[in-house]
């Protein structure tokens, strides 16, 4: 990226520093969950490492508080950008009663919060893509300018629901950003065995929308692409499919062993293109942050992570008998 790219995009130094802060926070929270898992304190995790640049770049183009998110399980940085707190994420990791996503009912990575405009999702991949289209339809029926972003991996780009959702949004020109985070693997299955034609973005054309492939490890390139897509959506010009090319730097989940399907050399090469390192280097090069600033930010972030873990670990679990609650509405009044 050119030195002054962030200014050309209309971003301030404060904004890009905040984007970097979110990436560091997501990374350190993620790293800590691996430690907690290996220490036997949390049963499971899915990781966002390597995706932080794509997520933060995309989220920065949205209006938090107005726009809606139908996330998928890797969207840790994305939901942080939407306002979820580190403590709330840790409450989810520890399956505590106060977890705002699910009250400890869902696995970590299954985000949802009415307060934050994050629509709930399941583990059945791709289902959330159709929800995004419905949420956008609802917004348009009410004459609102809301844009809905939905995230998914390239693996889910093969699910029928991706195609059904994209087609519906294309027909009705709905304000949806289909944000594919292509990390080249659906657990162990590489891109060339997953995607006929090799490109998710190319599928946009068939559904009447632009499909744009972007370097997902280039935060500002992602921001620029999604910003343009948001603008189109808000002006009533319809959906856009964005394919952010990235890499998952760690195994799929705490139960995966990625050495069984990809070489260490490949992973080490990908680490040299880590979006966090790239963006950190860029911010130093353009003089927005110094090495000392970044070290101070890291220390501050680690303290935030420590506090989040302590608070969540100490928080109470849900009452066992609450297993029976929330099957149906308790009363008819809420409707």
């Amino acid at each position: 990226m050119t030195p002054e790219k962030y200014r050309e995009l209309g971003l301030t130094g404060e904004q890009v520093r905040d984007m970097y802060r979110l990436m560091v926070l997501a990374r350190e929270l993620d790293k800590r969950t691996w430690l907690l898992n290996r220490a036997g304190k949390i049963p499971f995790l899915v990781s966002c490492q390597g995706h932080e640049g794509a997520q933060v770049g995309a989220a920065a183009a949205l209006e938090v508080g107005t726009d809606l998110l139908c996330p998928y399980y890797r969207d840790i940085a994305m939901v942080l950008a939407f306002g979820m707190t580190p403590t709330e994420l840790m409450l989810s990791n520890f399956a505590r009663a106060a977890d705002p996503n699910s009250g400890g009912r869902q696995m970590p990575g299954h985000f949802g919060s009415r307060r934050l405009g994050i629509l709930t999702g399941s583990s059945a991949v791709g289902t959330q893509i159709t929800h995004a289209v419905g949420a956008a339809l609802a917004a348009r029926m009410r004459g609102e300018t809301t844009v809905v972003m939905t995230c998914f991996g390239e693996g889910s780009g093969n699910q029928g629901e991706f195609h059904e959702a994209a087609n519906f949004a294309g027909v009705h020109k709905l304000p949806v950003i289909f944000f594919c985070q292509n990390n080249r693997y659906a657990i162990s299955v590489p891109l060339e065995k997953q995607v006929g034609g090799g490109s998710i973005a190319a599928r946009g054309q068939g559904y009447g929308m632009p499909g744009v492939r972007v370097d997902g490890n280039d935060v500002l390139a992602v921001y620029e692409t999604v910003r343009d897509a948001v603008l189109r959506a808000r002006q009533g010009e319809g959906p856009t499919l964005v394919e952010a090319m990235t890499y998952r730097l760690v195994p799929h989940s705490s139960d995966d062993d990625d050495s069984t399907y990809r070489s260490r050399e490949e992973v080490e090469a990908a680490k040299r293109d880590d979006p966090l390192l790239r963006f950190g280097r860029y911010l130093r090069n353009v003089g927005v942050m110094t090495e000392a600033d970044q070290e101070a930010l890291l220390q501050k972030t680690l303290a935030i992570v420590d506090a989040a873990v302590s608070e969540a670990e100490a928080a109470p679990s849900p009452a066992p008998e609450s297993t029976l609650e929330h099957v149906y509405a308790a009363t008819r009044e809420e409707h």
């Binding site: 629509l119 159709t130 929800h131 419905g134 609802a138 029926m141 009410r142 029928g160 629901e161 059904e164």
Partner: peptide
């Protein structure tokens, strides 16, 4: 709607999550 039942129901769910009664 297009002829796609998962899309019909999924879209209805999304609209319901965003305040409509499909």
């Amino acid at each position: 709607t297009p002829l796609a039942e998962a899309g019909i129901v999924g879209t209805a769910i999304g609209a319901a999550l965003n305040g409509m009664l499909p």
